[in-house]
Amino acid sequence: METPVLIFKCVLVVALFIVSLLVAMYSTYAERKVAAFLQDRLGPNRAGVFGLLQPLADGVKMFMKEEIIPNVSNKTLFILGPCLAMITALMAGVLIPWGGNLEIAGHVFALQITDLNIGILYIFGVTSLGVYGIMIGGWASNNKYSLFGAIRASAQMVSYEIAMGLAIIALIMTTGTMSLSEIAHQQGSGYANIVYQPLGFLIFLICVFAELNRAPFDMPESESELVGGYHTEYSSMKLGFYLFAEYINMFISSAVLVTFYLGGYNFPFQAELNSMLGLSTNAATLLGTGVFFLKIFFFIFFFMWVRWTLPRFRYDQLMKLGWQSLIPISILNVLITGLVMWFTGKIN
């Protein structure tokens, strides 16, 4: 790899890391503000203007708290759990195409850390690994409530991953590629994939809720039944890691969702707008990235909106929804997609 590319990638990796953490930090703040807004309250407003320093204060608090590792726990796994959750959360972001191309000193760089040709599989694999953090943490705590949370998390993951996979298969059929940059690029010239895959989008959205353990699928940490679920025994920054990983996951999942179905960094009348404003390539790319982030923030808000509106499912109802509704519907979706493609002559 050439040196400028290497430097650029390094900068991008660091930038992604920082942005992920920043977005996750301010998602915790946003969560509390959105909840407050939906519930007729004020929300955090003491630390800094509008409580903007609240995430920092929370972070400091998490670091300063006493760290308690239960005597009866498996210490190695107890520490491994939150680390794994955090690592897998940070790993998925490398494949997201954050924007178009940048031109710096005659070199063209893509705003993507790496473009695997099996990108979808990678993302799918890494997000699935996330549940190991929860399972290991729940098991290592040696607490029955944690174990309940861990079991629920793994059962939930198993039942929703299949539907999610099938929704993506239909997407791969229409796009014909597994590379994320290719998917994002295709949507720039045609319609966003949601037009071709409305049902697939819905299934994927529901599965993302389940994947993120967000309400109405927040079984693993349903605080009214399981105390804290898998993180009942966790304290200090280990707890912080779990919570943080959840918000990073939310950010990355929104990004994946937007890339797959809602055009990624493209937006309607993009070319017209760029020529009207007379933007350079770099400015146009940055504008695209800005729009991409706006879409992501909308979905983060959407996740919060749903969380503070709906009650949660019971464990068996959730399995039922996964196995008996979503999987048949997603198979149907694959079938319909195939038939439509066959009749329109897209495949021979």
């Binding site: 909840a35 939906l38 519930q39 007729d40 309250r41 309400a215 109405p216 927040d218 349903s222 009214s224 039944e225 503070w308 509106t309 709906l310 009650p311 949660r312």
Partner: peptide, 16 residues
């Protein structure tokens, strides 16, 4: 009952 099903918002509305 709402809170135990995970719907905290109704609780806050009516607790006022």
């Amino acid at each position: 009952i709402g809170v135990d099903t995970g719907a905290l918002t109704g609780f806050v509305y009516i607790f006022q």
